[in-house]
């Protein structure tokens, strides 16, 4: 592994097996035995720790902030009109 003067890593000479294990771990596809091996590696490799932590925190972040987008005003009304159905809900009427 090589590092620049600023401390930013510019290369990461890990085996394909290890990279694949990390991807599987992040995809929740890693078996128990391999998990132990990966855990050991991460505890000894700061770069992999930052990598795994940062991806996991990012996934947590967007899952936490992934709200159901509410339909803007009028969308439901237009939908029912196109479908030629009567909206049973009073939601649209209340918006008026």
């Amino acid at each position: 592994m090589r590092g620049s003067d600023s401390g930013i890593m510019i290369g990461h000479n890990h085996s394909e097996k290890m990279i694949s294990m990390i991807q599987k771990h992040l995809g929740r596809d890693l078996g128990v035995e391999a998990k132990g091996e990966l855990k050991k590696h991460i505890s000894e490799c700061p770069d992999c720790k930052v990598y795994v932590d940062s991806i996991e925190e990012t996934v947590k972040f967007y899952r936490k902030n992934n709200a159901v987008n509410e339909m803007p005003s009028g969308v439901s009304e237009r939908l029912f009109k196109v479908l030629e159905l009567k909206n049973n809900s009073t939601k649209e009427e209340n918006e008026k």
Partner: peptide, 30 residues
């Protein structure tokens, strides 16, 4: 790619979960 799988500047990466922003700002960022 896998060859550069660390992405860029990970040493400077900021955890978005630690940022004290309101929900609408977080949603906009996302």
């Amino acid at each position: 790619s896998e060859a550069s799988y660390l992405g860029k500047d990970i040493q400077n990466w900021k955890n978005p979960m630690e940022a004290e922003q309101d929900q609408s700002v977080m949603t906009t960022c996302l």
